[in-house]
Design a protein around this nucleic acid. Sequence first.
DNA 1: GTTAAGGCTGTGAGCGCTCACAGCCACCAT
DNA 2: ATGGTGGCTGTGAGCGCTCACAGCCTTAAC
Lengths: 371, 371
Amino acid sequence: MRDSPSNHPAATLDRTEDSPTRLRDSAAGRENVTVTEPSRLRSRPTMDDVAAVAGVSRGTVSRVLNGGHNVSRQALAAVERAISKTGYVVNQHARSLVTQRSGSVAFILSEPQDKLFEDPNFNNLLRGCTQVLAEHDITLLLTVAATGEDRQRIGRWVTAGHVDGALLVSNHLGSPLIAELKERGLPFVVCGRPLGQERDVTYVASDDRDGARQMTEYLRSAGRRRIAIITGPLDTPGGVDRLAGYREIVGHGDPELIATGDYTQASGEAAMARLLEQAPDLDAVFVCSDLMAAGAITTLQRAGKRVPQDVAVGGFDDNKIATTTKPLLTTIRQPWARQSAEMVRLLLAHIDGEAHSAVILPTDLVIRESA
Amino acid sequence: MRDSPSNHPAATLDRTEDSPTRLRDSAAGRENVTVTEPSRLRSRPTMDDVAAVAGVSRGTVSRVLNGGHNVSRQALAAVERAISKTGYVVNQHARSLVTQRSGSVAFILSEPQDKLFEDPNFNNLLRGCTQVLAEHDITLLLTVAATGEDRQRIGRWVTAGHVDGALLVSNHLGSPLIAELKERGLPFVVCGRPLGQERDVTYVASDDRDGARQMTEYLRSAGRRRIAIITGPLDTPGGVDRLAGYREIVGHGDPELIATGDYTQASGEAAMARLLEQAPDLDAVFVCSDLMAAGAITTLQRAGKRVPQDVAVGGFDDNKIATTTKPLLTTIRQPWARQSAEMVRLLLAHIDGEAHSAVILPTDLVIRESA
DNA sequence: GTTAAGGCTGTGAGCGCTCACAGCCACCAT
DNA sequence: ATGGTGGCTGTGAGCGCTCACAGCCTTAAC
């Protein structure tokens, strides 16, 4: 059929019926190969195969694949039949090579892997991003950069064109990934304020400082006078900004009222124990994550303190665990759904060439039982 | 330099010093563009740019990139200098288009997302696979196929050539993914016995049946006579095979001694409550996952039963939670490290064209306090 | 009846790379 | 001198696709 290009499509359509679906010259009969077929993808049908079967040209097949505009109904039907007949699947590499788009973005978690599984925040975020991206028919690839070596490999991988952009989550101070992506010109958006690297990067953050302020203010207005704090790691925005908000209310704060955790439940338990030793008279504690707060409550109760009568406890995040502690946790709600939606929106905009920007999302105080 | 191809490389090497690194004709001076640079990757340097800067040919650059064999020391040095000068990164799409390899494999989790975060087994598996693959310089991409729609999109994505192979985790009976991948000829290996689809698929599984047998036999040898079981979902191999192992020891089993959970802690609690109602005289329970076992212990203790004095509890998995329950959990150890190592090994072998095969890994009884 | 407009089509070029090949040189053995 | 040999090099073809273009053909407009 290729040798008579001026044929009417309609004239050749029927001819496909009597010739078996042949993929490449040598591929005939490879359908029922042995069980141990090497399964290399060598002889996958190409657009030309589909075109030949459908009795149209490569271009028409391409048009069908890309929305089907300006294609006659017969041609469209013929191509669709040919596609399912041949089992054709587009070769994304070839497509990406010319379009410069891959149709997927990376979700890069710079965190030891267990954290990913312990901290429900990542879960929320991941779920939100996957969902919003799916609406744009974009696949989200999760990669965990636990070690420095991982980060290097992933940096290389990401900039090699595998993805159109990246979502950076849980970046600690001085993470080299931001600098690298920036240098390579790959669009990305950071979750949380990128400490020390705010310039020229797009990020979406909750208003950590204001949230901390709200909680501390609330504790104080409830009559608490010795308000302690368990912060997150001080090389993360959630660590420093929430501490800053706390200080806005209490002043610089007694050093013995300050302890630092790493967002895990165990670290919350330990930090609380330290605080109790340093300042046995504390009557409130603002714990900068719900998970740590759950740990803190355990320690307090084990030490014979009643929550909230003896010590009020405030958390941060408002995720699932806040509704399973005893007493229920008073906390600051982070708008995870909006957070992920905004991240995706900005990333797509950025991929389309829009300018950098930063979005700060408001947080709310959720009052339950623990304070 | 391109116009005098017969120049000796050495003669042109120095010339690169006085001409600024020009990427494409129009790209000169684009380095310090405004903050709002569209960040499209259009003008990324190509191999030709590198070759021009280094004063060698495209072929030599390619050779350097692929191991540097048969390249003179001067050429090698020149190319390396040119690469870092231009900031060249290989375009993976172009490379994959010809090599038919992408250098990454997918880890496909067919499971609602929260499971991923709750069940430590996935964590173990993921960690192991990432690590082993990294040794081969292959990136692992995690995709979560929560809904049927997800599965479709991922199926398309995976078969479009984005990955060289796939690791399928947590497949329920009748998952269409297996059939699709098989049809497309994409190499993959399944974690756990693929119920009803064992033919012609490569999989790695623990010996669920034998593990269950060991545990049940142990409980019985400890003098327990009313041994209940909390199974996993009966459309998973861990569900049916462990039940089968249990039945090998106790006979068909009283229906009131059998309850089913979904591997979550909450489902373990609920299933235990049901059992207690159906068969208040039970003196042992074999719970088919540690997470569920932790839930079951909670329910038992809440009901005033002592573990193990009144009711012995056996788990399955031997993951972290088994060492944090009170009492410590007697359980069946699954060899997660070997599991992931074998999966990767088989996948790589399969990608290289080897035949299908199945590997069954032995399990061990770990005696602690709960039984 | 001529022209313009537009729907539908095939074709060529080219995305950035790898791989096979051929050519060149220097060196060795005959 | 002749003929390998092997290290190092450049070149052409082609991976499977998209996109711009040109060439139909049909219809509407004057």
